[in-house]
Every structure is written in structure tokens, then in C-alpha cells.
């Protein structure tokens, strides 16, 4: 009898847990739901019934939003992919250097990077802006790209160094016996093995610059060259509020993230959790 009461009790608990999670989940998903429903409405429909889908669905909201958002999206994708490629090119080589060799001065160079992890970067925005101005890079994508590449260095070198140190040294020795140069070792041994970690790092960097607001705000002037975050804020402040267009724009702006996650979610969840355990 004791057992039975225990069991019903635990069943009730189990239901309570599910209910709690579903409640939290529904609240977390609510903004997404609202955005998608409103993106199919005209303002009149929205005022009439704000909570659910109303018919007819106005797909033309998406066409209108696309015409204004698309350029921001392509800009951001260009900046993102370019800077990720450059960052990887630099960080893999540097991490290979730190992981495989102890040269005179490599300790100093290591701390040269590591100290930046502790230093808050908040004060350097203004001189950075002036520097970019002196290099006459203002209002070009290259200003964004070199800053993102430099900003990605420290963390990525740190993580990739740990990763390369875990690769068995025999592999490198064998390659060396076969006469492989260091570059060949990087591109034939390190690169093929680091797919999952590189995609995690790349996604994190991409999410970061997809949402970055301050730097493009001060660096880019032309509307045609804005990146997504600034573009969206500008849309939000410029429109005579036609909520349907705005929400359609927000939905479109989320699509690339959704695509990335669909393709890499399994890897990403795994990489995130294991990285967390390692500290």
C-alpha cells in the first residue's frame, strides 16, 4: 500500500514537471508565435484580433519586407563568411604554433593573447573608430571584417590550441617523415579533424556578428551597406508602422539562423555541452 501511494504521488509529480516545462517553453516561444502571426496581417486585422491567425493571409508582406531587408542580409552574410574564413586561416596556424612548438618567446606571445581575455574592451571603441578612419576604411566592409577577425583571435586560439594538443603526435611525426611541410601538416592533419569544433566556433562568431550593433552603427554610413542589426533598428524607427511588414522582416532575418541550426544543431548541442564540462 505504501508503494502504491508512492507511485501515484510520483505520477502527479511527473505531470507537474511536464506542465512546468511546457509553461516555461510556451512563454519562451510566445514572441516567435506573435511575430509569425502578425507578419501575415494588415494593421486593421492586427487591431481586430491580435492573438491568432486571421484570413486572408497577407503573403505580400513578405515580398515588401524582403525588398528592404534582403540587402542587409546579403551584406551581413558577406561580412560574416569573409571574416570567419580569415579568422580560421589565422587562428589555426597560430594554434598549431602554440600547440606543437615551444620556441623562445612563445610563452610571452601566449600571454600576449591571454591577457586580452581579462581586459575589458569597453574603452577602446573610440580610438578604434579613429584608427579605422585614419586607415580610410570607414564606410567599407573591410573595417568590419578586420575588427571581427581581430576580435575572434584570442578565444579561438585558446580553444584550438587545446584541441590540437589532443591530436596524437604520431600523426605529425609520420607526416614529417614523409616530408610534409608545416603548412601541409596544418591542412592535411589539423583541418580535416577539426570540423566539429570549427563549426561550433564559426557559428558562435556568426551569431555574434549577426547581432552586432555598435560597430556597424559607427563605421557604416550608406544605407546600402548596413549590416542586419543596424538595418532592422533603422526599419523599426523609419516605418510608418505597418506591423505586418516589420514582423515579416524580423521573420526573414531569423531564417538564416534557423537554417544554420537545422543543419548543425546536433553538433552544436554536443560541442556546447562538452565545452561547458571542460570549463
Amino acid at each position: 500500500m505504501i508503494f502504491r501511494s508512492h507511485k501515484t504521488n510520483s505520477l502527479a509529480w511527473e505531470m507537474a514537471k511536464h506542465l512546468f516545462i511546457l509553461l516555461i517553453l510556451s512563454m519562451a516561444l510566445f514572441p516567435l508565435y506573435v511575430t509569425v502571426t502578425i507578419s501575415f496581417k494588415t494593421n486593421a486585422q492586427f487591431v481586430g484580433s491580435p492573438w491568432s491567425f486571421t484570413y486572408p493571409l497577407h503573403f505580400e508582406n513578405y515580398a515588401i519586407a524582403w525588398s528592404s531587408v534582403s540587402k542587409y542580409i546579403f551584406n551581413t552574410i558577406f561580412v560574416g563568411i569573409t571574416s570567419i574564413v580569415f579568422t580560421f586561416f589565422l587562428t589555426i596556424n597560430a594554434a598549431y604554433f602554440f600547440a606543437r612548438f615551444k620556441m623562445p618567446g612563445s610563452r610571452f606571445l601566449w600571454y600576449f593573447f591571454l591577457i586580452l581575455m581579462l581586459m575589458p574592451a569597453v574603452a577602446s571603441l573610440i580610438p578604434l573608430f579613429m584608427l579605422l578612419k585614419d586607415m580610410s576604411l570607414l564606410n567599407t566592409f573591410w573595417a568590419l571584417i578586420i575588427v571581427y577577425v581581430a576580435g575572434g583571435q584570442v578565444v579561438q586560439i585558446y580553444i584550438l590550441r587545446n584541441f590540437i594538443e589532443d591530436i596524437p603526435g604520431d600523426l605529425f611525426d609520420a607526416a614529417e617523415v614523409d616530408g610534409a611541410s608545416h603548412f601541409q601538416q596544418v591542412y592535411n592533419i589539423v583541418l580535416p579533424m577539426s570540423g566539429s569544433i570549427l563549426s561550433t566556433l564559426g557559428i558562435l562568431q556568426f551569431i555574434g556578428l549577426w547581432n552586432d550593433y555598435i560597430l556597424p552603427l559607427v563605421v557604416i554610413r550608406d544605407d546600402d551597406m548596413l549590416t542586419l542589426a543596424v538595418g532592422l533598428v533603422r526599419m523599426d524607427s523609419e516605418y510608418i508602422k505597418e506591423w505586418g511588414h516589420l514582423m515579416a522582416g524580423y521573420t526573414i532575418a531569423s531564417v538564416p539562423m534557423i537554417l544554420i541550426f537545422i543543419f548543425t544543431m546536433r553538433m552544436f548541442v554536443k560541442g556546447l555541452s562538452s565545452g561547458a564540462v571542460k570549463g
Binding site: 511575430t35 551569431i207 524580423y250 539562423m257 541550426f261
Partner: peptide, 8 residues
């Protein structure tokens, strides 16, 4: 929910 970009 994470796929909604922070800015959006």
C-alpha cells in the same frame, strides 16, 4: 527560441 537572433 535561441534561433531568434538577439537583435530581433
Amino acid at each position: 527560441p535561441m534561433i531568434i537572433p538577439g537583435m530581433v
